[in-house]
């Protein structure tokens, strides 16, 4: 039997897919640790080998929307005072955010499988 709550959540997740690239990257950056904004930018840059330099505008607009969608929460836990800067706000991924990120990853994997089946093989340069 379907759990009605679960199916509601599934619908909510589906409504958000496909995720904008910036949103997915932010979720990835927060997967293992709470981070403040600038740390997210740095993490994304590092993860993509410097390819994706997220701007402050894109970052905070994404964060604003993700907070409203319930993908993130702002955490009140702070690091030790000497490491902290009071201007900084730290963000944490929610269980819903994790579920959405997983769903997006599944969607991408499926897409990748289809691409492979169609003969597009990633990882190799064309020619």
């Amino acid at each position: 039997m379907d759990d009605p709550n679960r199916s509601t959540q599934a619908k909510e997740i589906d409504a958000l897919l496909p995720l904008p690239a910036a949103t997915f990257h932010i979720l990835l950056a927060l997967a293992d640790d709470d981070r403040h904004g600038y740390a997210i930018i740095q993490d994304v840059a590092a993860r993509t080998g410097g390819e994706l330099q997220m701007s402050a505008g894109t970052l905070y607009r994404s964060i604003h929307r993700m907070l409203e969608q319930g993908l993130l929460v702002e955490t009140s836990e702070r690091p030790a005072p000497d490491e902290d800067d009071e201007r900084r706000r730290y963000y944490r991924i929610t269980p819903f955010g994790t579920a959405v990120a997983s769903a997006e990853a599944r969607r991408l994997a499926q897409l990748l499988r289809m691409a492979r089946a169609a003969g597009f093989s990633p990882g190799r340069l064309a020619g």
């Binding site: 640790d33 709470d34 981070r35 403040h36 600038y38 740390a39 740095q42 993490d43 836990e77 702070r78 690091p79 000497d82 490491e83 902290d84 800067d85 730290y90």
Partner: peptide
Amino acid sequence: MKKPACKAEGRRQK
């Protein structure tokens, strides 16, 4: 408590 990333960051910024 989770450890915030970029510990050294704060000091340098100051």
